[in-house]
Amino acid sequence: MKKSILSMISSGSRSINDPRELYLGLLYPTEDYKVYGYVTNTKVKFVIVVESSNTQLRDSEIRTMFKTLHNAYVSVMCNPFHVPGDNITSRSFEKVVSQMMVQD
């Protein structure tokens, strides 16, 4: 998985997207799931996995989800009590994530 993300960054093979964009788009569709990726400039990778049967989530929605996730992550990192590299225990981050999941 990690390898495929990294190769996508280096090859820049996404035809639709700007290669300098943080959002990587659909990484690969399997039979049951669609896997989307997002890598920040600080090399943090976010992955969203959606059931293939779920058709109401479009590319733009996935994009907004990543953006929200990224914003939440930035807030966690800017918390002086968070030690970089530790597990994220922030309640507000968790809230953002779970809100995103119950959406549908």
Partner: peptide, 12 residues
């Protein structure tokens, strides 16, 4: 932290 915040909207 600042690096994380300032690069939020910048391209790769």
């Amino acid at each position: 932290s600042l690096a994380e915040r300032f690069t939020r909207d910048s391209p790769r």
